[in-house]
């Protein structure tokens, strides 16, 4: 792997890491497997890109994206809690609906950001070389999100979120309305995913309706890698592990794509297959280990 490819992978790992933090919140903390993210990542990208091309400040466009993602997550959680639709199904419904909505927002399958100012321009103007701008901006946002989440999970409300995923009966008996917590938590998760999508769009100069495909699988793979490699004993450690897991995942993908076995090479389109296999292995390993040890 070239130095340049590695840098690119770390950059990707950081920006998708924000999405992974969101996935960690639903998948691990709230115990709410949420596929909305495949739709809320491009939603964030679309909102930000359209906002910027109509003259909105790029930072403000990030906030709009976050808000949009938050609403999408709330819809999923609302369907689940108030109408008792299975969480997976509820999230698939929102995800599918978002496909159409994203095309409506962009008035087409994609939007290019030719020549518009983005959050990266502010950094390059400060004198940061442009090939480092991504690293700086993504690193900053990722650190902010991790720090914010660690702080939040330590608050009274954050502890209630933790307890809702852990033992809903207990926290209900303590006077917390778990429906509100789930709606807020899934909203927050998708807000982060949309923020990640918005940053990606600003970085690559375009939003595309197809860019969300496989987000959840990449998110899960990163979460699992993070937990396995870096552990999750405390909340701070778990979030940092999720972020690092995302970086390791992107590096692994870059390595795999650079691999050459005889005449065989992986295509970028093989990525989803590789990731799915990775998640499957990670999910069944604990089970297999237990069975082998039981013998």
């Amino acid at each position: 792997m070239t130095w340049y490819a590695a840098l690119g992978a770390v950059e990707q790992g950081l920006v998708y890491g924000i999405m992974v933090i969101g996935v960690y919140l639903t998948f691990r903390i709230l115990d709410f497997p949420d596929l909305t993210v495949d739709g809320s990542l491009p939603l964030g990208a679309a909102v930000s890109a359209v906002a910027i091309s109509s003259g909105v400040n790029p930072y403000l466009s990030l906030l709009l994206a976050l808000g949009g993602g938050f609403c999408a997550g709330m819809v999923t959680a609302f369907l689940n809690t108030k109408f008792k639709i299975l969480h997976l199904l509820a999230s698939i419904l929102t995800m599918i609906a978002l496909y159409s909505i994203n095309i409506r927002i962009m008035d087409g399958p994609n939007v290019a950001l030719l020549g518009s100012d983005t959050v990266f321009d502010a950094v390059t103007r400060l004198g940061v070389p442009s090939h480092f701008a991504g690293l700086v901006v993504f690193g900053l946002f990722a650190a902010l999100v991790v720090g914010g989440m660690v702080w939040f999970m330590g608050t009274e409300i954050g502890q209630a979120v933790l307890a809702t995923g852990d033992n809903p009966q207990m926290i209900t008996s303590q006077g917390v309305n778990i429906h509100v917590v789930i709606i807020f938590g899934v909203g927050l998760s998708n807000g982060l995913v949309a923020l990640s999508g918005a940053l990606i769009a600003q970085n690559q100069g375009a939003a595309d309706v197809g860019m969300g495909l496989g987000t959840i699988v990449a998110g899960l793979a990163s979460v699992i890698i993070g937990e396995t490699v870096f552990g999750c004993q405390t909340m701070a450690r778990a979030f940092i592990a999720a972020l690092l897991g995302s970086i390791v995942y992107r590096l692994a993908i870059a390595l795999a794509l650079g691999l050459e076995l005889g005449g065989f090479r992986f295509n970028p389109s093989d990525l989803n297959l590789i990731t799915a296999l990775l998640v499957i292995v990670a999910l069944i390993t604990p089970n297999l280990k237990r069975r082998l040890l039981a013998r």
Binding site: G154, T155, E156, I157, Q159, S173, Q174, G175
Partner: peptide
């Protein structure tokens, strides 16, 4: 905090 409002103060 049973039955009371929860806010953004430290949990513990």
């Amino acid at each position: 905090l049973r039955g009371q409002k929860r806010g953004l103060g430290r949990g513990v």
